[in-house]
Design a protein around this nucleic acid. Structure first.
Lengths: 130, 130
DNA sequence: GGCTTCATGAGAGTCATTCTCACTTTTGGT
DNA sequence: ACCAAAAGTGAGAATGACTCTCATGAAGCC
């Protein structure tokens, strides 16, 4: 059993920033946002905090096409998918077809276990097109 | 109009290796395979060749959970999805539910264009479990 | 055979992410 | 409040995948 995380200025700042931001952002972007707000937090700490939040399922993580990790505090905690803008990270939470059961069925049929799946949509939003 | 790629020893070696390998492999792994075969090819060339093949849709690319690119010469050229083993890269080509039309519909409904989607399944195969 | 042009590769460079470690803060008694 | 133990922090170094540079080599074409 691991102890609950400690409440530090940095952790709060990261959580607050995530609460304000609506879209998926990289750790570096978050770091910059915090800096410009005046809540300066070390880059390593931003990474650590985001990972911790992700493990606690407080934030969702996904990889953009460059393999960079993007983080977002989602409205719903239940499982869902995303439609994300390649340009600005603008995000819409969406309900996918029920891939969950399909995924584990297909997996089991081929002798695979611990099936996990990724279903994400990428596109260019109206703003990033003009 | 760009000229067709030249047929070099290196390009052939990479293509051959991909033809023999059944599973998703990283550029580094391919490089190692080539080296152990005796068909030594520079790492930069392996990367370049794989990218070229991917652009030509000769191979499929996907990102593992670490964000690393994995390549595979797939049996079918039509669109399909994969069930990949996290441990060894063992791959099964699968038919997913028809997400294609769903993807563009959902995208359009939110004002997004050039919709692209990722649907991949990850699991642990029988061999990697024992 | 010559020649033009693309391909190669060794090594340097980039960049996101992680690690190190000395220093600071929280937290949980007291 | 006080204090020690343990966790958190951050500047900078390290890692690792990938890309770039540029001098040299090899394809394709006459």
């Amino acid at each position: 059993m691991n102890a609950p995380p400690r409440m530090t200025r940095q952790r709060t700042a990261v959580a607050d920033a995530l609460a304000d931001l609506a879209d998926f952002r990289s750790a570096q972007q978050l770091h910059e946002v915090l800096r410009s707000r005046g809540d300066s937090v070390g880059l390593a700490t931003v990474y650590r905090t985001l990972q911790a939040l992700a493990e606690a399922r407080e934030v969702d993580v996904l990889r953009n096409e460059d393999g960079e990790s993007l983080y977002r505090r989602c409205a719903r905690r239940e499982h869902h998918h995303h439609l994300v803008c390649r340009g600005c990270g603008r995000t819409v939470e969406i309900d996918g077809p029920t891939v969950e059961s399909w995924a584990s069925t297909v997996g089991a049929a081929h002798g695979f276990e611990d099936i996990d799946h990724t279903v994400e949509l990428w596109g260019t939003c109206a703003d990033c097109r003009s």
